[in-house]
Design a protein around this nucleic acid. Structure first.
Lengths: 152, 152
DNA sequence: TTGCCTGCAAATCGTTTGCAGTGTT
DNA sequence: AACACTGCAAACGATTTGCAGGCAA
């Protein structure tokens, strides 16, 4: 599976490289760094998390550059925006099939899981209402087992 | 059903009145106006919509007052916050069982529907992950039949 | 009278944009 | 040499907060 991760990484980087070439955009050091940091995490994240990681290695990278890069990844089809309503925009690798989130209302942790059986069912209901479904998001709020165990 | 709506309205207003008394808070004209406007709509709404309606009748009501009132309704258990990721906080009457939304990515319209069969199923999965579920939200993005029909 | 509430304006927070200088092609 | 890109700071839009005066209890 280690090998598979690396394969995904290479595919994504290649996909991005092609996207840039096709659009006449430029392959800059920052974009490469941000994409690497994003791929390293391998889970949904928000800009500030990436920004902090990146600042560690490259102190003069700009906040705006990270925002711009993630938006670019999204239009390139590499990333996907998710918004869990806490005022932060999160990003996850597109291509994955994780649209299901457990949000802990205590510590704010977001756990992802997958449950594809529900998608068909849900999409069917929507279709019967004359709605053409593009994407599905399921969000559960509650208390995670860690917070349940240790009262602060 | 007209009668039932009025019954709900009275119950909610009574619930709010009790809440205020118990907490030592005050029943002001503004809070009453905002609650009425909220109940009149009888569907999820955002602050600006309420604000505009209220300004029509009471030109010097403050933006902040509407925000504060809706937050109060939420803590009173009358309203529920929903966030569909478009940067606006929406509110709906709590007590209802509508947690399912169709968001049109074209015109932004939010249509609500109900599908309780899914809740048990989904909650079960979460529980197996050691998660205590408090609430569930299902969000479908796509194109509504109106937008599908008329290309701009 | 007490002190919660209101309306206004200023502050805040995440995110976007303008701009002058830099780096890719 | 063109022109996209970066970093900074200022702008932005939704929401919150501080404060002086106003109004329920």
């Amino acid at each position: 599976m280690e090998a598979q991760v690396n394969q995904t990484r290479q595919k994504v980087k290649e996909q991005f490289r092609l996207f840039l070439t096709n659009k006449g955009l430029k392959a800059t050091l920052q974009r490469s760094l941000i994409l690497d940091a994003f791929l390293d995490l391998d889970r949904s994240t928000h800009i500030d998390e990436l920004y902090l990681i990146l600042r560690g290695k490259h102190p003069n990278i700009g906040h705006a550059t990270v925002y711009r890069a993630l938006r670019l990844f999204t239009t390139a089809g590499i990333a996907r925006e998710i918004n869990l309503g806490d005022g932060l925009t999160r990003y996850e690798l597109a291509g994955g099939r994780r649209h299901d989130y457990l949000v802990c209302s205590d510590c704010g942790t977001v756990t992802e899981f997958e449950n594809s059986s529900i998608e068909r069912h849900q999409a069917e209901v929507a279709r019967s209402m004359g709605f053409t479904v593009q994407s599905l998001k399921i969000e559960l709020r509650g208390v995670c087992n860690r917070c349940m165990a240790q009262p602060e």
